[in-house]
């Protein structure tokens, strides 16, 4: 089958039972997406399919043929960082780092789609991404910062 991941087309032979998460991690070497539960309960495997955040552990790779996959490895140029990545570092929005890819994939989608106007909205949207180190307040702070910077640059502030 063929899969388009971060703009690159990959031809891979996979059994239908292989999850998108295992396909990315074990077959394409894209280990940024994490396996925290393999049961849809933690969000560490969050990637985008057709631009929408989904759980790669409950998605079969074979069902993603002809679909556009975006992972943490694909949201910024190789030598740069996405503003959300920078804000996560600045606000210490992670500790062990294992949930971070998923958090960022959700956060970037949230900021892109709008709906991060209040802390309550951010918290609810981001609740599908468990952080066992409990960096949640810092994650919210990072998202707020990027939101407010976006508002400033777009002249709406």
């Amino acid at each position: 089958m063929s899969m388009r991941v971060n703009g690159d087309l990959h031809e891979i032979g996979l059994e239908p039972r292989v999850s998108l998460l295992d396909a990315l991690r074990d077959h394409l070497g894209l280990t940024g997406s994490k396996k925290g539960c393999d049961q849809g309960t933690c969000g560490a495997c969050t990637v985008w399919v057709q631009g929408r955040p989904v759980l790669a552990c409950l998605t079969l790779a074979v069902a993603c043929e002809d679909r556009e996959i975006t992972t943490i490895e694909g949201i910024a140029p190789a030598d740069g960082l996405h503003p959300v990545q920078r804000a996560f570092i600045e606000h210490d929005a992670f500790q062990c780092g294992y949930c971070t890819s998923g958090q960022i994939m959700s956060a970037v989608a949230l900021l892109r789609d709008g709906g991060a106007e209040t802390d309550d909205e951010i918290a609810e949207y981001m609740s599908g991404n468990i952080c066992r180190c409990a960096a949640y307040p810092n994650i919210r702070a990072a998202i707020r910062e990027v939101r407010d910077a976006d508002l400033e640059t777009s002249g709406r502030a």
Binding site: G32, S33, E73, A76, L81, I89, G97, T100
Partner: peptide
């Protein structure tokens, strides 16, 4: 800031 921050936010870790 964490010196390993960059590789954690890019998925490189």
């Amino acid at each position: 800031n964490r010196v390993d921050g960059r590789c954690k936010v890019t998925g490189a870790a």
